[in-house]
Nucleic acid binder design. Sequence first.
DNA 1: ACTAGCCCCTGGGAGC
DNA 2: TGCTCCCAGGGGCTAG
Length: 291
Amino acid sequence: MPELPEVHTTVEGLKKVVIGKTITDVWSDFHVKTAHGERSNIKNKKYFADFKKNVIGAKIKSVERLGKHVVINLSNHSTSSWQAKNSIIVHMKMTGHLMYGASDPFVHLIFKLKGAGDLALSDMRKFASVCITETKKVKNHPGILELGPDPLKITFEEFRARIKSASWRRPIKTALMDQSVIAGIGNIYSDEILWVSAVHPLSRAGEIPDKILGVMFANTKKILKKSIRHGGDSMSDYRNAFGEKGGFQNFHKAYRKTGQKCLKSKCRGIIKRLIVKGRSAHFCPAHQIKF
DNA sequence: ACTAGCCCCTGGGAGC
DNA sequence: TGCTCCCAGGGGCTAG
């Protein structure tokens, strides 16, 4: 599922091929029921009609990542210059991925680009959300306004303060996955970070010693960067901007390894699974310490 | 201030 | 082979 490394990989790929391209048409069959609070996206027919109007004729100026969101900044032609105006905000949720010049049976949104390939959104389970807003309002957009800082840019002091201030008693896995604490970590990376750091997912965030938090901080950056180097994680449906799989699924130590022997050297544990805040947590009860 | 539980969705795996 | 049932989960929401 697209978390920080996957969204990063997608954005870096898109940067190479879509910047400067003009959108000539948009197609979508993404008109399904929308969950509560998700009505303001292209799954709503009326919203899509407005979206289409705003997007056709615009030029892609830049692509960036904010947490797990892909932000595509557009510019519109004015008499004097190309000016940024609107931004498309995509959250790929579970099975979504943006692809350039590639397709698969689950494409539900296509941007036709002038003199170039199509930019398509594939999403088997249709959880993705696509919105448009004025570029200057992106930072205040629901879902982005609440985002905490980026774990790749944060300092240890900030990391420590945010993890501890979230809630004294809340499970560390919950804090790591809370996008308002730190933006970009989901189920795969929280499991992997905690396994490597030897911290039990149910440890109370406020009780983890600073020394251990320091280890977690270093491992967070290390693991996210390692996944980026391998093009993200394709255990599920993730594909990069060119429809290719990433490789980080080959390095999992805990995620979806329930019942398997712990891979830590000399550890004799068996990976267990439990539910934390409605998500499955995979961990080794033998070496991951509960604080 | 928090959590449990439900909702959106559908391919894939297990069991028969 | 093909049916049914269950599972995967990000995040928004409500109820407790």
